[in-house]
Design a binder for these strands. Structure first.
Lengths: 185, 185
DNA sequence: TCCATCTATATGCACATACATATACGTATC
DNA sequence: GATACGTATATGTATGTGCATATAGATGGA
């Protein structure tokens, strides 16, 4: 389970409440990790019990009080260890590929339509990432950007490369499927 | 949940027992879907209760009796429907990218080492797929191959394209990280 | 005044899934 | 005779996870 370590990483940049962590996940790591609000609070409770976090209750006048979490030394250490720990590589798990694999059970035109839909979804995902990147420094200017920020940009690069490759692969797949349709229909 | 539909797809090609389905998953769709043996039996029970499958108990002399599952009309129909149904597109979920995103908390050399490890894993995955493909028809001969089989090859193509793209992206990432290391260390 | 919305935290619940374990038959090996 | 292995099916259980819901203070608009 990685969520606690995501939270450690975010809290290393600055102390936050669960509510703020939820927003931070949505704003900055959504392109490779999403989670439910309820999981965040559950994770925070466990992390506090494990001594990774210290809670500070902040009384607010203009909105409900909040519990701001701070990294402890143990938490900082847990993050540093995790950042060096190779994760077990998860095998591909793509249910939609089964719709291709077993596609011969329905007319080719229908599977083509399906894949075109998936292509559209990927194109939209890529557009969202490109829009995000347009508001950030270009590759040439990166050397002058804080180190922390350079790492963050690398994950955005990965997301875009993934989407572009996916588009190209889907296009190739669609071409092959059109050949199948020609021969057999 | 997709496992029941995976089983429908496999059983459409021929009736099998749970034990044989487990082997079929390992032999032919492992490159995009894996599962535990226990889930297969649980899924089969549910699918039978839902009327998608019919059981035939086969008495064997040389090994324990087996329960061979056959598709019913309802099962065949459920497969056909699923094959046309767009799956909700799952957002990227790559915990290792968080190790990059938060990488500034440890020396760059350590993150480089980590990514090199991941690169090795991807290269091994690609090698396994290439070995598998070497025993199958090349692209030029595909037109003369059964339609069912052509679809199966497309999923292998996808797996290889994914791995190749992943390798290229990781290499680019490693180059960027070496630049970071030069500037800041 | 009522209602919606934002801030803020928390629990209930269902589902998917993996790991471990249990049972049991037949064959081959030591 | 004991042990290991392949075949074959099944349950127990823990964990990860998302959706729904509950509670509640403050603000702003209809």
């Amino acid at each position: 389970m990685s969520l606690p370590h995501m939270l450690l990483g975010l809290l290393e940049e600055g102390s936050m409440s669960g509510y703020e962590l939820n927003k931070a996940i949505h704003d900055s790591i959504r392109h490779f990790w999403t989670t439910d609000q309820s999981q965040i609070y559950r994770a925070l409770h466990k992390m506090e019990a494990d001594g990774w976090l210290r809670v500070e209750t902040v009384i607010q006048a203009d909105s409900p009080n909040k519990k701001v979490y701070h990294l402890t030394e143990a938490g900082r250490e847990a993050l540093a260890v995790w950042l060096r720990t190779p994760l077990v590589n998860q095998p591909l798990r793509e249910a939609w590929l089964a719709q291709i694999f077993f596609g011969s059970a329905i007319p080719t035109a229908e599977t083509i339509r399906l894949v075109e839909g998936y292509r559209k979804g990927v194109a939209e995902g890529l557009a969202a990432l490109e829009e995000l990147q347009a508001r950030l420094p270009a590759a040439g200017e990166r050397a002058h950007v804080p180190r922390r920020y350079q790492y963050q940009l690398l994950t955005l690069d990965y997301g875009m490369a993934y989407h572009r490759s996916m588009l190209a692969t889907l296009d190739a797949m669609l071409e092959q499927m059109k050949l199948i349709a020609e021969v057999t229909e």
